[in-house]
Design a protein around this nucleic acid. Structure first.
Length: 563
DNA sequence: GCCGTTTTCGGCCCGACTGTTTTCAGTCG
């Protein structure tokens, strides 16, 4: 069991209590326990009960609940509440913009227990008539429901990969002599996975079908399956699974066909080539077509055929070409690990610099830094830099901040304070609902601010959960080009923002991109693997990757930029 | 349910924003 599982159970219990009309302060105790524990580095699964109740926000009762969760794997209080909650009401928790209180009203006052009924009620205006609701809330619920329904069977890449890997592991154990590979969306490193596809090379397809059907957690959809294709689902998941079965001789051909998008296959006769005689490698397919090899993640049928004529695959960014990690949080704001822990780990992973960028003062929810805390942090950075760097292995913490872009486009410190940083990530965190015109003038003003080094998560999107604020990408990128501002590829699998589809345009305009993990704890650094994956998909080269600069180059750049 | 004392019980939280209201509840980051 992980800390997160415990926190998820406590948070859901809190939400359910609120939904069922429990005392607000009691509810708040659950949220505050989760809030505090989320930032703690204690291992909740092993810490003694006596110490648990000493943690901030955890009393005797909460400690007992945590103990119950870690011994039984669940919480009776939560299960009892779930028993009394219709499934459809639970689903309403996922609608952005309404919380447990409004869900309670919908459930009890309109007697709605199903999201389809809720959509109908929005359409005939019933929802707007509830006290505290109105036309806008009703419209927001409606759009949100439609968004959720359209995405209900999709997964973000990290979740999709996890499930695909689960099935792959089991199949490899059960079919030890077969070639098995993940293909489709996941092999192309799509940020959103619509179906999980695997390919098995085996001479007796029915044996493969038998193995899959023998797995208790895989449920076949017989009507859409065939002797060579197993289709169905994994227990408790709504994403479709598809296992293609090919003859061992044709494995590479099929692997190619099921990995590339139809638009890619349609060009240069690639599909025809792959459908002919058995091939030993994918490279041969491209050779036969008379073009250089194209990496799997790029095979979308968009820019890759032009790209490969002007570049080589060696130019693409890799994990190893990254020299430092920018945009990270510490316990100064809402991070889990101290500045020293973050820095030491970063150095030990072999990076040359850590760019710290805690939240700025406007982000009060995240304990953003007031001016005195900025000074304090800078003093600590100076001390740590002396301690962590050696002549053989130079390492430096760069003084940064993730400065909130305010409603009017300004950054939230005085010029005096802005000057004191080595670099600034400017990000929007508030007022996400703006017209495009307003959102763009705010963004442009922030880009034009001479202290802005990097534009952070430029659209604010949360994949499968929230569309970003309206952004005219072309206009934004042009402004970054004109002002020498770097754009972040936020590597969190929840964001992956800037979208890879805009990388080529940014490069054309000479805008560098920075693959930033937005790490709130040490392990968060590894999110850069997702960032690298989508960056390569979009054709980002090493020489245009901001954090591929060495420490010496980075320092020189930041100094010249400040001038 | 937690906290911090007045050690037994009363008061609880961070503030902006939105969409409702016409002074504020709910939601969010």
């Amino acid at each position: 069991m992980e800390n997160q599982t415990i926190l998820d159970i406590l948070e859901l219990t809190g939400k359910l209590l609120e939904l069922h009309g429990e005392n607000d302060f009691k509810v708040r105790a659950y949220y505050s326990a989760v809030f505090n524990l989320d930032k703690s580095t204690e291992d909740l699964t092993t810490i003694p009960v006596a110490q648990l109740s000493g943690l901030q926000g955890v009393g005797k009762s909460m400690a007992a609940k945590i103990e119950e969760i870690r011994t039984t794997g669940t919480l009776k209080e939560m299960n009892d509440l779930l028993q009394e909650t219709p499934e459809g009401v639970l689903e309403m928790f996922r609608i952005k913009g309404i919380g447990p209180k409004k869900v309670r009203q919908i459930w009890l006052e309109l007697n709605i227990t199903d999201t389809r009924e809720l959509l109908l009620a929005c359409e005939n205006g019933e929802v707007a008539r509830l006290k505290g609701f109105g036309e806008k809330t009703q419209e927001a619920i409606k759009t949100n429901l439609q968004f959720l329904q359209a995405n209900s069977s999709k997964l973000r890449m990290e979740k999709g990969e996890e499930l695909a890997q689960q099935l792959l592991d089991v199949l490899e154990t059960n079919l030890p002599d077969s070639a098995i590979q993940i293909v489709g969306d996941i092999r192309r490193k799509n940020e959103i996975v619509e179906s999980i596809q695997l390919l098995v090379g085996h001479s007796k397809p029915w044996e493969v079908q038998q193995v899959i059907n023998g797995l208790p957690f895989m449920q076949q959809a017989e009507k859409i399956s065939s002797p060579f294709v197993w289709r169905g689902k994994m227990e408790g998941k709504s994403i479709p699974f598809e296992v293609q079965i090919s003859s061992p001789e044709n494995f590479v051909n099929q692997q190619f066909i099921y990995s590339a998008s139809p638009k890619h296959l349609a060009q240069k006769s690639l599909l025809k080539i792959a459908q002919k005689e058995p091939l030993a490698s994918e490279e041969i397919i491209y050779q036969t077509a008379g073009i250089p090899y194209i990496i799997p993640e790029m095979r979308e049928g968009t820019f890759e055929f032009d790209w490969i004529q002007q570049h080589s695959n060696d130019e693409l960014v890799t994990w190893d070409s990254l020299k430092g990690i920018l945009h990270n949080h510490s316990t100064y704001s809402d991070g889990k690990h101290t500045l020293e822990e973050m820095a030491t780990y970063c150095r030990d992973l072999g990076f040359e610099y850590l760019g710290i960028a805690d939240h700025s003062k406007t982000a009060i929810y995240a304990r953003g830094l007031y001016e005195d805390r900025v000074d304090q942090q800078h003093a600590e950075i100076d001390r740590l830099n002396l301690k962590l760097s050696t002549p053989e292995k130079p390492f430096k913490i760069l003084k940064g901040i993730e400065s909130d872009i305010l409603g009017d486009g300004s950054l939230d410190y005085s010029e005096e304070v802005l000057k004191s940083f080595d670099y600034i990530v400017a990000s929007v965190h508030q007022s996400l609902k703006m017209t495009e015109e307003k959102a763009m003038s705010r963004l442009i003003k922030a880009i034009e601010n001479p202290y802005t080094t990097i534009l952070g998560h430029p659209t604010g999107r949360l994949l499968l959960s929230r569309a970003g604020y309206p952004v005219n990408h072309q206009w934004m990128i042009d402004a970054c080009a004109a002002n020498g501002v770097v754009i972040e590829i936020n590597a969190s699998p929840y964001r992956l923002d800037l979208d890879w589809r805009w990388i080529q345009y940014a490069l054309e305009k000479g805008v560098k991109l920075s693959i930033n993990p937005d790490a709130h704890e040490k392990d968060g650094y590894f999110d850069m693997h997702y960032g690298v994956a989508v960056a390569r998909k979009g054709g980002l080269t090493k020489d245009m990757t901001f954090n591929a600069l060495s420490l010496t180059e980075m320092e020189a750049y930041l100094i010249s930029r400040k001038k």
